Structure formats: structure tokens, C-alpha cells
Simulated assay, not measured.
Amino acid sequence: MTEDGRRRGRNETEEERADRMWGELIQEVRVAQTGVQILFGFLLTVVFTPKYSQLAATDQAIYIGTVVLGACATGALIGPVSLHRLVAGRRVKPQAVRLASRMTLVGLLLLLATMTSSLLLILRVATHDGYVPYLVSAVVAWYLVCWYGLPLWARRWHTTEPGDRPVPPKTEDGGPGRR
């Protein structure tokens, strides 16, 4: 069997793996796209409300930055769809999956920044209290744990190569941990 046709862990060829990974990626992107599009749509309407003209210059600057971040996040998260359309049938799916995956990761980072600045703006306008940056920081920390910390932890401790045994995490005393 040639190297290109060799089967891997799931007993699939590179093309089969790319097809599966593409399907999984598109499902994941659908979730993020919906959220960013709703948020971006909402942000676009704010400037047309009477309250916008009453915002302090700092809050207006935060709003403008938030809208730009939302536009960039939308572009990055819709990008994989355009990529797929433009390269379909060109026999480059494995490369397209890798590129679309990177675009999605960038889109998620931009979405995180958009949500952070949106939360900051809303809480600044709603409360005018000094604790707002701390509250926003706590929410961002939560997003980072959910979106990156736990997935990276799972990838580190629960990923194995075919034939390998999983390595359990160590406890504080250096002994093997429980799963």
C-alpha cells in the first residue's frame, strides 16, 4: 500500500480522514457562526439608538473597537465556507481542512475579544462601577478555561497514539492520578 493510501488509527485513508474532519469542523463552525452573527447584528443596531450619542468618548471608542472585532470574527468564521466553495473538487481537502481549522481558531480568538469588549461596554454603561474590569476579567478567565484550558488539558492527558497506553496525570505527591 502506498504512503498516501496507508490507513491510520481509525482505519481511514488521508482523504477519508479529511472528509471526516471537514464535517466535524463545519459542525463546530456553525455553532460559533450563529453566536457571532447574532452578536454582530445586535452591535450594528446600537449606533442607531438615542443612547449612543450620550455615551462617553471612551465608551464610543470601545463600541467602535467591538464592532470591528465582531466584523473580523464574522469574516474568520465564515471563511471556511468560502474556502470550501473555492477549492471543492481540486483534490486539496487535507490542506483545506488544516487552513479552515486555523481560520476557525483565529475566529474563536476574535469572538473572545468581541465578547470581552461587548461585556465591558455593556457593564460600563449599565453600572458605572469600578468593579466592572474585575468582573469582565473573571468572565474572560472562565471563557479561557472552557474554550482553551480544558480542551488543551484533555488533549495533553487523554490523547494516545495507536498501541500506546494513556498516561494518567500525576497527583500533588507525584503518584499516578485517578481518572
Rank of each mutant, 00 (worst) to 15 (best):
residue 1 M to P: 11
residue 5 G to C: 05
residue 8 R to N: 14
residue 8 R to V: 15
residue 9 G to P: 10
residue 11 N to H: 05
residue 12 E to V: 09
residue 13 T to D: 01
residue 14 E to D: 04
residue 16 E to D: 08
residue 17 R to L: 08
residue 17 R to K: 11
residue 18 A to K: 07
residue 19 D to A: 11
residue 21 M to H: 07
residue 22 W to I: 01
residue 24 E to Y: 08
residue 25 L to D: 04
residue 26 I to V: 10
residue 27 Q to W: 05
residue 29 V to C: 05
residue 30 R to P: 00
residue 30 R to N: 06
residue 30 R to M: 04
residue 30 R to A: 04
residue 34 T to F: 04
residue 39 L to V: 15
residue 40 F to A: 14
residue 40 F to T: 13
residue 41 G to K: 15
residue 46 V to I: 14
residue 46 V to S: 09
residue 47 V to Y: 07
residue 53 S to L: 11
residue 57 A to T: 14
residue 58 T to E: 14
residue 59 D to Q: 12
residue 63 Y to M: 03
residue 64 I to C: 06
residue 67 V to E: 00
residue 67 V to H: 00
residue 67 V to F: 01
residue 73 A to V: 04
residue 73 A to D: 02
residue 74 T to K: 04
residue 75 G to R: 09
residue 77 L to H: 05
residue 79 G to W: 08
residue 80 P to T: 09
residue 80 P to V: 12
residue 80 P to A: 06
residue 81 V to T: 08
residue 81 V to S: 07
residue 83 L to Q: 13
residue 84 H to V: 05
residue 85 R to P: 12
residue 97 V to Y: 02
residue 97 V to K: 04
residue 98 R to W: 07
residue 100 A to N: 04
residue 101 S to F: 04
residue 101 S to V: 02
residue 101 S to K: 06
residue 103 M to V: 00
residue 106 V to F: 11
residue 108 L to W: 03
residue 112 L to R: 06
residue 112 L to T: 14
residue 115 M to F: 14
residue 119 L to A: 05
residue 119 L to V: 02
residue 119 L to P: 02
residue 120 L to T: 05
residue 124 R to S: 13
residue 125 V to I: 12
residue 125 V to H: 07
residue 127 T to C: 00
residue 130 G to E: 05
residue 136 V to W: 00
residue 137 S to D: 09
residue 139 V to G: 03
residue 139 V to A: 13
residue 142 W to G: 03
residue 145 V to G: 01
residue 145 V to Q: 03
residue 146 C to I: 06
residue 146 C to E: 11
residue 147 W to P: 00
residue 149 G to W: 11
residue 150 L to T: 10
residue 150 L to W: 08
residue 150 L to K: 10
residue 152 L to N: 15
residue 152 L to Q: 10
residue 153 W to A: 13
residue 153 W to R: 12
residue 156 R to H: 13
residue 156 R to C: 07
residue 156 R to N: 06
residue 156 R to Y: 10
residue 158 H to L: 15
residue 158 H to F: 15
residue 159 T to E: 12
residue 159 T to K: 12
residue 159 T to C: 11
residue 159 T to M: 11
residue 160 T to S: 14
residue 164 D to L: 12
residue 165 R to M: 10
residue 167 V to R: 14
residue 168 P to G: 03
residue 169 P to K: 00
residue 171 T to N: 05
residue 172 E to T: 13
residue 177 G to R: 05
residue 178 R to T: 13
